[in-house]
Structures are given as C-alpha cells and as structure tokens.
Design a binder for these strands. Structure first.
Ligand code: ZN
Ligand code: ZN
Ligand code: ZN
Ligand code: ZN
Lengths: 162, 162
DNA sequence: CGCTTGATGTAATAACATAACGTTTGAGGC
DNA sequence: GCCTCAAACGTTATGTTATTACATCAAGCG
C-alpha cells in the first residue's frame, strides 16, 4: 500500500482526492453504475474531510450546495457509496468514511483515535487467517466482516509522551 | 432463533444462566463493583434471550418489573455491563448481548446470521493476533477492538441446502 | 450530624435513520 | 421523435436510538 494514503501520515491531499474521484468514475462506468452529482459530491466531501462524517454532516454540506436538504438525500448517496465499496460506515461512530483502497475486495479494519478522532483504514493481512479460522471452527459462512478498534494514534501518542 | 442454541449449538440454557449470574456476582464482589438489582436483572434478561436485544427492549422488560421506565435506566445498566465485560454492544445492530466468556480478557468476534438473526460470539485464537500485526505496522495503540461479521449460520445454511 | 459519592429516577431533547409518496430524468424500444 | 419504464431525486412525516440535565436517595465516613 502507498504509505501516503495511510490514515495517520501526511500526504498529497489534493492529489488523493482527484485520484479517488477519477478511480470512482472509472469503476462506476465499468460497472454500469451512475455516479450522479449528489453521489460524486458526497464522495468528495468524505475525501476532503478525510475523517468519519455523520450522515447529517454530509447532508449539511450537500444542502448548502443546492442539493436536497432532507435526510434521505444524504443516506441514499451514502448507501450507494457503501454498497459499491467507495465508502464504509463505521458503526461505532455512526459515521461514514471514504474507502482507502476501493476496487480491492477487502475486510476493512478501522483504527479510531479516541483523542483526536482521526480514523484510519488499515491494511489487513490478505490471508484473512482470523476469519477463515472462525469460519472453520463454527461452520458460519462469512459474507462481510469489519474490525473496529479504538485507541491512540501515533501522533497523539507522541504528544502524550512529552 | 431457537432459545436453546448459543454459538449455534444446543446447550443447557437454565444452567448457563445461573452459572453466568453466579460468576458475575463473584466477579463484581472481587472487583468491588455493585451488581445492583437493575444491573443483575438486565444481565439475566440478556442471558434469557440469548440474542442481541436493543436497549429499549431491555428497558421494556425492566419497567414491567417495577424499575424505571426512562431510557437512561436501560442505558446505564447496559453501560455498566459492557464496561465491565459482562456484555457487549453489537454496533451493527445497535443491540446488546451477554458476553459468552466473561472474565477472560478478549477481543470479541460476533457472527451475525442475516437469515435468522442469531448472534454468536466466537472464540478467537489470541496467538493469531491480527491486532498486534496492525498495531505494529501502523504505530496505533489499540485499547479495545471488536470484529463483527455478517453471514449465514450453520443451521440456516443446512436448511438452504435442502 | 453534615459531607461526599455513587446509584436511581424523571423529563426533555438530541442524534440517527427510514417509510411513504410524488416528481423528474434519461435510456431504449417503437 | 415520442412513449414507456425504471432509477434517481425531492419532500413530509415519523420511527428509533441515545444523551443531557437535574432531583432524590442511601451508604460510608469524619
Ligand atoms: Zn487525502
Ligand atoms: Zn489521535
Ligand atoms: Zn444459554
Ligand atoms: Zn441463521
């Protein structure tokens, strides 16, 4: 994974937004999906903020820009994005975040800093050993899974150590 | 869900309730915690149902039995239970469930059947720690983590195969 | 007793999410 | 070009989940 897209590290932000939008455009075109103005704008809002945003936060931004002002406007756009792997919902926060590596089939793992509220989507071991182990011992067939962890990010930890 | 199943397997349910309550009593006594009537009753409600219950479901049961009827009554009892490892919140369902193996320090992994809505708390192999791998590569310090998986339980799968 | 602390109770409200229904839009068939 | 249909969009209303704020009560302690 490109270290510049890891959540707690600095990176070329303008570039990461435009790249992500371009990739989303192509993905939707290829899959026959409509990345409509609201949906595209919702995605770019998530990318701009680069943290988990509540549906109502996104809604406020959208409505400022002339889109509808009612909750379903935001929820529908976010549903589309999450359904097609362009964003994730972080259940613990009731909030949404742009996917850090779309296109790849993956089990997201979120690291939520309880100090600064940054959220990073970590890369998980592609062997998925934990999941397959669970599936094997329980007989459960896993369709989707998500790991959510709370703790302290490297930046906040450094400050705390001083 | 068949109330006699936990983890998707049948078991002696009356026994598992009384055992769990006894263990919770001892744990709280040893730790200097107050397992008050509301808290104990909230735990036993979760154990009786043996599935994920919403806070308002628990509240309804509690208020029927003479406890307070306002949301904080349930939320406070559930907060106590989750804080001290006697129950977990399943974020994906906004629901609570009694812990299947309290006393042990663990990262719970929930298997949520999308067909019958049963929820099992899987054992995870601590040696296999996906978490420490993530912590190491990202520099993030993990305080608490939870894995939530959706899929099909063995019972529902068997039925579907027919 | 007077003080503190933790538990409980209530009212009010905030935050999050969906149901239901009408209107608009645009691709594909004629 | 025009019709039709399905998907997307918009709004109103409502449902669900969770918290804030504040009063009361009982236990522990000088
Ligand atoms: Zn960025
Ligand atoms: Zn931080
Ligand atoms: Zn049981
Ligand atoms: Zn099932």
């Amino acid at each position: 994974m490109d270290p510049n897209t890891v959540g707690f590290a600095k990176h070329d932000h303008d570039h990461c937004i435009s790249d992500a939008i371009t990739a989303a455009d192509r993905m939707c075109r290829d899959a026959g999906l409509q990345l409509t103005p609201v949906r595209k704008r919702a995605l770019s809002i998530l990318l701009e903020e680069h943290r988990a945003l509540g549906a109502y936060d996104v809604l406020a931004r959208l409505s400022e820009e002339g889109f509808g002002a009612q909750p379903p406007v935001a929820y529908r756009a976010l549903d589309f994005l999450t359904k097609h792997g362009l964003a994730h919902k972080i259940e613990r926060l009731n909030a949404f975040i742009a996917c850090a590596h779309p296109n790849e089939l993956h089990t997201p793992a979120f690291l939520i800093c309880t100090t600064c509220h940054a959220v990073a989507e970590a890369e998980t071991d592609p062997s998925h050993s934990l999941l397959s182990q669970i599936a094997e011992t329980t007989g459960f067939t896993i369709a989707r899974a998500v790991l959510e962890a709370e703790g302290t990010c490297p930046n906040c930890r450094e400050k705390a150590d001083k």
